[in-house]
Design a protein around this nucleic acid. Structure first.
Lengths: 337, 337
DNA sequence: TTGTACGCGTTATCAA
DNA sequence: TTGATAACGCGTACAA
């Protein structure tokens, strides 16, 4: 492991000169610079980012905090695609990514700001954080720049990237009301996700616009799980034959609902229309193909990293990024009989 | 940002004492330790890992080198699931993960060992590396501990984790020969992947055991891409009606072959049997459900990190980890007519 | 049981 | 254009 010291000795100059030569300062003789550079190459030198970070108080590192980097999310590619976007965006700007994995046990042991300061990350991107996550409160108090995905909190050092979930849900439900459906249920996710609340809002909003009375009992909770949604839908559809359409807050839950319908002998879309949310890969592979609301997950990640880096580098940037989403009509929706 | 200096001043002791007190050395008075600890808490102190790394020459960090953390891999969850395993395993042992994203442009600018030494990672896990990747040669020469996934290279500082691809492929083909198939083609991936070579071996091996002559023209190249496989299969099946089964080196390619068959009006599995490889999520959602060879991707990642950390910590460990895989029979395979 | 002094590899300040 | 020297925050011989 050659250091600038070794180079200095070999070149017969001081470490100061080596440092400046290698970092492209212009107050160094081009001849000595050339000499130093060639020696550096010869010695296979590479700068020690750790030492540099220490003295510059800059690590060029972004922390990635994913609440659950786990297999539970394996069916939808949500986290992965977002990570791809984050990765591309941050590597473009020369930032490295450090993965903070957290589980509740670790959270108890180490606070958010401890985690960040320990590794000296310059900023953090958070994904998959539930609304009651203890770290969330800390984010606001701490002065560490942070970008949240799908959690709409704004502040001096806090921004967020999200899609317009109210509008997305409304679009989905509007598609159903336009087809003539009146008895529309919603299979929502758990309440610890901000998006659940937003999508419920969009659902209600469209019902109102279509002059359909909101019914509390039409709000189901599938907890974003396929199996749970199937179970819930099974008994619900049994008791509510009048319902001709279900809007689901995730594709995974829509899959569950489709299974329930199948088991009950309810034809999709002839007797029951279903709209999902996310447009996961599976959506176009299931039979019938699932109508859904598409979110550009890669873009979410990409923009999140971009926003964070803008914040870090003092560029002015809107701390609130809302991306479009779009309705994709496939074969699980039709006019009611 | 409180440092041990601040604590030392507040506690009226030297930094040495603070350091030792906080790190649990037993040559410090319990009373002073208590005092120091409480002050540390008060000041919301957290140790600076950067400074610590510099002096200890240990970063407790593992580099994760994924050749393509990109959307091309989004359909199969391969990379993601492996990452989950790596993450769980390494965080269990107290190592953090730093994401090295590489593309060919960056590779030209920075060598493998430069990348590693710059960030001072203690070891590296590589996934998705092609056999002709320039970094691969460097791994062997460099003395940085490294674990490769699916590339079988062994050495003092190099280990690998893989599944038994020869056996897996043989199992798949054996399933076909057992059903009575004799004219079996293989849709292989590109040659830059080690697994392609292994799976071809397994294919040949089983043909031999079943006394079936190997035919070069039955070896197709789908480059691990769905579209490419579909295209190749389309013209191949057209010209070779005698072929009753195709073994595919990935599920994604199997999907492509299924599409080709559909377009040609060839019934699966009645007229054509198909076996895939990987058992991606989609495999059980397509119609008919895909028979395939399952790999435990999470385990691959988990064991890879475990092996690397064992190497780092000087524990003796077999540098060669081969995991089992298993045949999953679904509905794309049947006896030939 | 505690403190002094030095070093890790680098950059920054100042003087030459 | 160059070089001493201090500093970043921490750990650790060694001495006290």
């Amino acid at each position: 492991m050659a250091t600038i010291k070794d180079i200095a000795k070999a070149a017969g100059v001081s470490v100061t000169t080596v440092s400046r030569a290698l970092n492209g300062y212009n107050d160094v003789n081009e001849k000595t610079r050339a000499k130093i550079k060639s020696i550096a190459e010869e010695l296979n030198y590479s700068p020690n980012a750790v030492a540099r970070s220490l003295v510059k108080s800059k690590t060029e590192t972004i922390g990635l905090l994913v609440s659950e980097l786990s297999l539970s999310g394996a069916k939808d590619m949500f986290t992965y695609e977002i990570m791809c976007g984050i990765n591309d965006s941050s590597s473009e700007k020369g930032y490295d990514l450090i993965l903070f994995s957290t589980n509740s046990a670790k959270q108890k042991a180490k606070s958010y700001s401890q985690l960040c300061r320990e590794r000296q990350v310059e900023g953090v991107i958070m994904q998959g954080i539930k609304i009651d996550d203890p770290y969330l409160k800390e984010v606001i108090d701490s002065n560490i720049p942070c970008v949240l995905i799908d959690v709409e909190i704004e502040g001096e050092n806090v921004g967020f990237v999200s899609t317009d979930n109210v509008f997305g849900a409304q679009m989905a439900v509007k598609h159903l009301t336009n087809l003539g459906h009146r008895n529309i249920a919603i299979m929502n996710g758990h309440n610890q996700a901000v998006v659940s609340q937003k999508r419920l809002q969009g659902y209600k909003k469209q019902l109102e616009e279509a002059s359909i009375a909101f019914q509390e009992e039409y709000v189901l909770n599938g907890e974003f799980l396929e199996e749970k949604a199937e179970k819930v839908a099974y008994s619900f559809l049994n008791e509510h034959p009048e319902v001709t359409a279900i809007f689901c807050a995730s594709d995974l839950m829509a899959l569950g609902v489709m299974n329930a319908a199948k088991r009950l002998g309810i034809a999709v879309p002839e007797e029951l229309s279903i709209v999902g949310y996310d447009n996961i890969t599976l959506a176009e592979y299931v039979q019938p193909q699932l109508s859904t609301v598409e979110q550009n997950k890669y873009q979410i990640g990409f923009k999140a990293a971009k926003l964070l880096i803008d914040m870090l580098e003092g560029n002015k940037a809107n701390r609130k990024v809302i991306l479009d989403n779009q309705l994709i009509i496939r074969n699980t929706t039709a006019e009611p009989k």
